[in-house]
Design a protein around this nucleic acid. Structure first.
Lengths: 257, 257
DNA sequence: ATATTAACGGCACTGGGTGCCATCGGCAAT
DNA sequence: ATTGCCGATGGCACCCAGTGCCGTTAATAT
């Protein structure tokens, strides 16, 4: 009784659409088709004005099927968020404790950025949507918070020796995520017009210098060495930071772990 | 035809309820009654299982009236969020440029904390709800992001002279908000068992030391003074920070603005 | 006493999201 | 090729949040 090709109200694909079978691969294809049709309709007539009915009509499936592929209408805008977050968790779990925690987190932040950079068109589309639709904006804020929580959880474990581990972990995660978002937003606003990866790396370098410096100083806290610093106040903060890091590196070579 | 006192399915208030009139004061009372009834029902039978129908039945008003007082079912859990956010904006706008930006932001963060501390029972109820109900948790994340945005906007203005004003503002706002949340959550989890204000002040002092230090150093960047620091690496970071701040204060007294 | 106005009640309606069941297509076992 | 299993689908009924509309009511002004 069903008419799979009947309406075809949107002219996106005129060919057969032979029901795609019931295979797992067909399922992924259908999911993708739904996402594409949804984004097209959102761009054409707005998010709120587009009903799920419209989307499934464009693809030629039943309304119920949509909610078997996406838990909500909003989720179709962030189709792979769960997998991405799971990937970040995996990357953090796989990172051994040999690397400094900040290094791991900063690298993972670059991984997250790469996810956006991998498909600029989709990212830009999403950016436009999230800027205009309040509910989608909220959804993105929540998903970003998900990354921040994961980072904080990892750092809590790595900082567990310190007395203020939880606070430091929360603050550091917030710092890294805020930096990532700043670079990403700047990149999106510019229409993808610069090297976001390098920008993030540099920004993280500047922003997290305090944390690395403090943790490095504390890591040598049992040697009772004396550090003497002499700087002109006209010296740039970056130069001071670099010099301090150099000193700490030397100390590390002469002395401790 | 309506029966205002009829059902009284919940036994929260047995008295007359004389329709409360149509005055503005009566409106606020009704809003409060709806919020109380809603929180009671949420605690009794869960958030999802409680319909707006249930809430208005408990109070004895029409369903339509609920949505005249609250834009959504979720908003009844955070009834005064908009006013609070507006108050924060006002406090930031009213703060003159004479004070250092970090001082203003930290003080405002304490103001936000005070809002939670002002009514511990309600805050604890909300905390339980937001921990158990995903949609409410999301809502709270979004509202927290609202504070962060406001802080960042203020700091962007105050940092406008610096080259990396936007990034620094975003990171600092994220830091302050994360610290606030950490203290607040610890306070809520402990059931309100310690002086959250003092804890926040101390935590902010430790966390934002880097920023104040850096900004202080940059503010004297035109005097070309020489700063000499001598510390044992066994010295606690807090002691180092306090000492540095002392030195900077002395310099400020001898020299510049 | 009457007009005004702000709030309320009820009703119908939209639309997201879910539970249920019949059905169909692929796939393996026979 | 036949049979049976199973995952994916379609369609239906249903719940509920949220909105537009209109008539009504009560406090207030004149």
């Amino acid at each position: 009784m069903a008419c799979y090709i009947s309406g075809m109200s949107e002219g996106n694909s005129g060919e057969s659409k032979p029901r795609a079978g019931r295979t797992a691969d067909g399922r992924r294809q259908l999911r993708g088709a739904l996402a594409v049709a949804a984004l097209d309709l959102f761009a054409a007539k707005g998010y709120e004005s587009t009903t799920v009915e419209d989307i499934v009509a464009a693809v030629g499936v039943g309304r119920r099927t949509f909610f078997r592929h996406f838990r909500s209408k909003e989720e179709v805008v962030f189709p792979d968020h769960e997998e991405r977050l799971a990937g970040v968790v995996r990357e953090l779990d796989d990172a051994g404790d040999s690397e400094p925690p900040m290094t791991v987190v900063c690298r993972t932040a670059e991984t997250v950025l790469d996810m956006y950079l991998a498909d600029p068109e989709v990212s830009l589309k999403r950016f436009e949507l999230t800027r205009q639709v309040p509910s989608l904006r909220d959804r993105e804020i929540v998903s970003i918070d998900g990354y921040q929580r994961v980072f904080a959880r990892y750092l809590r474990r790595r900082f567990s020796e310190r007395a203020d581990a939880k606070l430091r972990a929360a603050v550091t995660a917030a710092t890294v995520v805020a930096t990532h978002n700043h670079v990403l937003r700047r990149w999106l606003k510019s229409g993808g017009g610069f090297d976001a990866r390098a920008a993030l790396r540099e920004a993280l370098h500047g922003v997290t210098a305090d944390d690395t410096r403090v943790s490095a100083a504390e890591s040598t806290a049992d040697t009772d060495e004396v550090v003497v610093g002499v700087v002109r106040t006209s010296t740039s903060v970056h130069a001071v930071r670099d010099r301090i890091e150099g000193v700490l590196r030397e100390m590390g070579g002469n002395d401790s772990d």
